[in-house]
Design a protein around this nucleic acid. Structure first.
Lengths: 149, 149
DNA sequence: CTAAACTGTAACATTTTTTATTACTAATTA
DNA sequence: TAATTAGTAATAAAAAATGTTACAGTTTAG
């Protein structure tokens, strides 16, 4: 079968809300074994998670050139960069759009002065929060985080 | 019917993930009309939300002595405190346990050194984030937020 | 003193999101 | 060339969030 048929329609992929935690876990394992290609099965075993979900997160990491992976027997995934050159801010950004404290699901009433502006005002508040969190996460490298284990 | 039968078993209530946004919206409206009892119907109209959900959030605000409400005809809800005496930190705390970037759903493998400690290490990271966000939200009062409208 | 307009909240239904599974193609290596 | 591994589609299942209905109890206006 033609490989192009396999091209992923990204919109069919659901988000994974434990994305950040899962991605950190994967990267911590890769940091502990920087010279080995770790299989999704092995990684999934540490997380008690389905290997397919691990591979989805790895696909994301690959798209951001954080890891490389090798198909076939003895294949797996390894870091492309030094753990000391990866910050938690990068990992955060590749697993989250932004930190936010949520929006109401429905479009508020545009005829109400509050309804009309509430989402914009919340966005601005959240942008500030996001910036502060980003500054903090930028100071922590994957190496820092992994060395706690 | 005996009123005690109406006692709410909190565990049967689902969380509302737009809780913070909804609560802020409610409080902003109450701030705009500090002398009136606003009905859940009116508030829900500004949010395009079911009045029952508004009443659920109001129940939470009442439990924290932020608002009072009056049953019966011409009833509704009003602020118990000045908007300048309510910080966004308080609102955050009453709608969120903590800010966090998520945990994987399943218990990780306790036989893996990483699996064994990952949630604890994430918790510590999240606690730091939470503290920073809290400091920021403490500086903003409901009055500050509402005056943007 | 009664009808209307509210809140409170239970119970349940629906929708949306997240997570898990299965299945199969393709690649790699021993 | 068989075994092992990634890639990813498709679908199923589970969990979480949101919405609805219903009705008891409260208050007030008239």
């Amino acid at each position: 079968m033609d490989k192009t048929l396999y091209i992923c329609n990204i919109f069919y992929y659901s988000m994974i809300s434990g994305k950040f935690a899962i991605t950190i876990h994967i990267l911590t394992l890769l940091t502990k074994f920087p010279n080995d290609f770790l299989s999704s099965e092995f990684i999934a075993g540490s997380m008690n998670l389905n290997p397919v979900l691990v591979r989805k997160e790895i696909a994301n990491l690959k798209a951001h050139h954080i890891v490389e992976s090798k198909e076939g027997k003895n294949g797996g995934t390894k870091l492309l960069k030094e753990a000391s050159d990866i910050t938690l801010k990068e990992i955060f950004e590749l697993t989250f759009d932004n930190i936010n404290l949520g929006y109401a699901k429905n479009q508020p009433n545009p005829d109400c002065p509050v309804g009309k502006k509430v989402n914009q005002n919340l966005s601005e508040l959240y942008a500030d929060i996001n910036e502060k969190v980003g500054l903090q996460l930028k100071k922590i490298t994957l190496e820092d985080f992994s060395s706690q284990f």
